[in-house]
Amino acid sequence: MTSTIVAQLVEREGLLPLLASRERGVVPRESEVADVVARAQILAVGAAADAARRRECGDETRIHIPTAPPATDALVVIGGDTVARGTALLRRIALLRLGGPIGLRIVVDFGALGLEIAQVALSFGATDLAGPILSRRATPEPQLRQGSLPILDRDDSKKLVKRREIAAYVERAGFRPVFVTAEAQSDGRSVPPESAPRAHADS
């Protein structure tokens, strides 16, 4: 939290004890988190979740291509089966960040939920994005294209984007994009940020 405006907001909304607890490595009790998060103003919840995310996971955003990795105790995927939308979705993600395990990776499936919301979710505690990205080698059928963006159907959740576009989305939200390929996922290899290709240099 760089601004006192947000710090004061987080304090006023009663979220500081949750952050302090997580900083000590202690996950707050579920009931406590749920109560505070449900009542607090959504921007305060987001700011608190973002502070926790940056402390626990840094400012790296992993982008999984073309699909999210399997969920584990340390990784949760928010995808198309999620009922929550808009502000409810953001609150849900923040709740996971503030009440979930320390360092939890929260993957938002932009292929299912839309890129705009996925981008905003990064500032509400999400750490990773997942979805299909247009490869330079895999040009879609011309009839599926509309303008510069290939569209599989009219649903924006199905819009394919280029690497540099998704990287720009991440950077404009104030994070550092790191691409994770399906091969790396299947090998169970982690991708250190130093060795990961910078997205905008790749397309």
Binding site: S31, R39, I42, A84, L90, R92, G100
Partner: peptide, 21 residues
């Protein structure tokens, strides 16, 4: 319910929170 409200089911400690919107 308040803005974007969510109900939270009680789960065992250290499990992911489950949210019902």
């Amino acid at each position: 319910l308040p803005e974007g409200a969510v109900k939270v089911r009680d789960r065992k400690a250290n499990k992911h929170l489950e949210v019902i919107s």
